[in-house]
Nucleic acid binder design. Structure first.
Lengths: 340, 340
DNA sequence: CTAATAAATGAGATCGATCTCATTGCATTC
DNA sequence: GAATGCAATGAGATCGATCTCATTTATTAG
């Protein structure tokens, strides 16, 4: 691959002049500039970013780590990030921790070696995170996404999980539900899932209702969900459940219907996240919509500001309650489902 | 950030020795090695990949371009790619073309400037693609994913779309369906969607059935899908439709049900892709499963082989027919849906 | 037409790691 | 004790672009 030096030679100028023809064309006489451009054309010259990065000590690359791209909530965020980053001349190095805190460290170390200009991370646990403790000593700007801001001290982009979950709960309460449960995936270890549980408890208490102890599943598989159904058939009937994320809600809804229960007739199901697909299902998923694309864009723009050296304390982004057919009033219910 | 030179100084050795302590420890006397390691530790030395890349003329980075991460079929592939790449010491630069051929060129150029060791692309049109024509002149290994192998001349990872679609059609025919339609998204311009239409036509002809002219939607929105429903209510009733992808199938299914039609009672709906969510819906989506994760892994391994200089002509990966509740027999049908 | 000033260009260093080649040091052998 | 050999280390070049500073060329003024 042709480099600047060969272009310069062919054009009969020095490296410096050839470089200037590209980076500051107005410092170069038009005639000379043309000679350089022609030479570059002939040799199919393509500037080497690596050399530029080494020289300029900036890579224009953002390191991104999400738990998994199998969950659309992260994929949709990433899609928006990519567009926003590219619009600002940045590229993304994308990695997935597969929900494993131990991998988080290796991944981040690798990205630091690559000298990314900044990091956008979603970690398992923002407080008490090994990676974040390491990063605190580094100068590379780092921004959290979805993780609640907190002791970690890092700026964070996302919604107020506690408030959002409380809103979801109140929505059900307003519809007349009283026996409301919460179902969490295998990731209750996740900080945001816990906040969602908090919010639910808060809203329940506020309405004088009993927050049921939460159903936490060890794994998120079809079999596990199925096994959840009999577990729901005990003394007191639940009329609604909130799932800590949409994937879980959709799966649960499917299993309930498959087992012959009507949603929302016998049980209302609410999700959390607002993945795009939920809108198109029947019944459509009632959920808390996190503005995934907006979160992605805000993450990029905030990080770029941090890279420029600005101090950033982003405010939580607004969530929205997305009504959906998966939630109804409890009145019409003739349930056989029971509480735990 | 501390560099090797400062480590060398602190350790009282030359740069060369310090470098060797890391890259070929056995060439360095144990005592010296220790001095270097200690110095590195003290200075929090972190090797600079950029310098290594410039020197070694290899980045250990793979450039990936997919149309959009909003479609789980790409997100799931990418998830597997990331894990496979990391396992081999490679990183991914991820970009999205947003289905725009014009963006494809810029994106690939950018990745070439970054000197990625190889490219994994999903383009709009493999034959007659501007990007691929450019890349043909380059030495950077390039591999297509999902795009059918063809005139482009680039190796390609994916299933046999034509055969898979024919299998889907035959599945419906075997169940007794005769009036089978096909619904395509806004992307019939996409090469794979056309092959799927071909396969459908082929299987229909083979069974002596009439391949309906295909319904192509200009956009893939809820409103558009809704408008499709009356368009289906003409003279002859369809008993089944195949959608060119799962997202479309899921949305269609939702709209049909919302409009009061029973799936599969009045209309069987089949998808294509096999995104994970389809399994958990009710009715679960009957579809052609592309092995997304396997495709992602194969893409990485094949590309790495190409980078090593091996010639690669990967065989199509096997697809699978995933049975699902969205498809039934036409007998029980009391349809009001009609053909076009 | 020359002096003074501005514009254009070139030489060389730099970013950080690594490779080649030369040199030093130590040990083995006769 | 000198010679031969290998192990360990250092000096310097290299990867490709860009920046600083010096130098040359062009321009304007007097």
């Amino acid at each position: 691959m042709a480099d600047l030096l060969s272009v310069a030679k062919l054009a009969g100028v020095s490296r410096a002049t050839a470089a200037r023809a590209f980076s500051s064309p107005d410092l170069v006489r038009p005639a000379t500039r043309e000679k350089v451009f022609n030479a570059a054309q002939q040799l199919a010259f393509r500037p080497n970013k690596i050399a530029q990065q080494l020289r300029s000590q900036a890579t224009q690359m953002i390191g991104v780590m999400v738990p998994s791209l199998d969950n659309p909530v992260f994929a949709e965020q990433l899609q928006a990030m990519e567009v926003a980053a590219r619009a600002s001349g940045y590229s993304l190095i994308v990695t997935t921790s597969e929900y494993s805190p131990s991998r988080e460290g290796d991944i981040v170390e690798e990205m630091l070696r690559q000298r990314v200009d900044g990091l956008v991370l979603t970690v398992a646990e923002a407080d008490n995170s090994a990676v974040l403790n390491t990063l605190r000593l580094e100068t590379t700007p780092c921004l959290l996404v979805y993780n609640p801001p907190g002791k970690s001290g890092f700026p964070s982009i996302g919604v107020d999980n506690r408030a959002a979950s409380a809103d979801a709960t109140r929505h059900l309460i307003t519809l007349g539900h009283e026996r409301i449960g919460m179902v969490a995936g295998p990731l209750l270890q996740s900080d945001r899932a816990r906040l969602r549980f908090d919010g639910y408890c808060h809203a329940m208490g506020e309405a004088g209702l009993i927050a049921r102890s939460l159903v936490e599943m060890t794994r998120h598989t079809q079999a596990d969900l199925k096994s959840l159904i009999p577990a729901l058939q005990v003394p007191e009937a639940l009329s609604a459940v909130i799932c800590t994320n949409d994937l879980l809600a959709i799966s649960l809804m499917g299993e309930l219907q498959r087992a012959g229960f009507s949603v929302p007739g016998e049980l209302s199901v609410m999700g959390f996240d607002g993945i795009a697909l939920g809108k198109h299902l029947y019944p459509s998923l009632c959920t808390i919509e996190q503005p995934r694309a907006e979160i992605g864009r805000a993450a990029v723009h905030t990080l770029l500001a941090m890279i420029r050296g600005e101090k950033c304390t982003p405010a939580p982004l607004p969530h929205a309650l997305r009504k959906g057919e998966s939630v109804g009033t409890p009145t019409s219910r003739k349930s056989t489902l029971s509480t735990l």
